[in-house]
Amino acid sequence: MSIAPDRLSPDQDDFYNTLIQAHEGLSEAQSHAMNARLILLMANRIGDLAVLTDLIETARSYADG
């Protein structure tokens, strides 16, 4: 796992607000589906297997915390 530098500031609140608003009106199942699509789209945009593998492992490493 790795610690990445912050690249969202100073727009982090705009991002978070956009993300949450995108879920408005969706059922919980629909929201999870949208999240899955979003991850796949982001993966394609990143397009680097080593980076993606590192991100997956990083996300997973918090699972028991």
């Binding site: 610690i3 990445a4 690249r7 982090q12 978070y16 969706l26 999240n35 915390g65």
Partner: peptide, 21 residues
């Protein structure tokens, strides 16, 4: 879903600077 995103932002904020912000 909002609660889930917030909980995970808080989890990542333990050590990820972007999540702290």
């Amino acid at each position: 879903i909002e609660a889930l995103f917030r909980a995970e932002a808080l989890t990542l904020a333990q050590d990820q600077p972007f999540a702290q912000k």
